[in-house]
Nucleic acid binder design. Structure first.
Lengths: 96, 96
DNA sequence: CTCCTTGTTCAAAATTCATTGAACTATTGA
DNA sequence: TCAATAGTTCAATGAATTTTGAACAAGGAG
């Protein structure tokens, strides 16, 4: 699978803010922030939208560099890229 | 004229992030942040887009509560609502 | 009053974005 | 092998956003 993730240098503020400016995605990020110790799978977000829709929003978050997605078996484990975001845009995540 | 501005309580994070997630508007905000001592008029942003287009983006920023616009003569003086934003979403502006 | 400068409004066109369902891939377990 | 589970991809549709130019309003200078 090898899902593409942007590197830290590639993180673009306008892209990230645009991606975060959506209620569904903000809900996903809030959920990830509340569970930072434990990676979540896509299924955990089904209360925020349909399966297809969540897959779409999770791809947006990953492509923007907000989240990291790794394939484990048939699941995807999703985590916030807190360290990378904090290094590149200090305070952004904390303010959300 | 009496341009409408949202109150501090009405500021909505998703709306603000969505509005900031656009290169033109991020450029405007960066410009305002660099000139926080002196209010700017719409004309100062014409390198970022056409007159109509800038008017459109400035309205978005004002409606989201990012900027304050006051009419002075035939001009509009535009400033960042830093205090309001800092109170409601501490650290957000600083991270940008 | 007349012109010039500043911006706004409007409608149309172009673009982008979000949402859906059906079909599909890949893994796991019986 | 067969069926179930977890997600993705695709094409289509509808909605929201951006961008443009033409027309407009309002204030200031002469």
């Amino acid at each position: 699978m090898a899902l593409p993730h942007p590197s830290v240098e590639q993180l673009d503020l306008a892209t990230i803010l645009g991606v975060l400016g959506d209620p569904t995605r903000l809900g996903i990020v809030a959920c990830l922030a509340r569970n930072e110790h434990r990676p979540l799978s896509c299924g955990q977000f089904l209360d925020l939208g349909s399966k297809t829709n969540i897959s779409y929003h999770l791809a947006k978050l990953r492509e923007a560099g907000v989240t990291k997605t790794e394939a484990v078996g048939t699941s995807r484990l999703i985590t916030l890229r807190r360290d990378d975001l904090d290094r590149r845009f200090p305070g952004l995540l904390a303010s959300i």
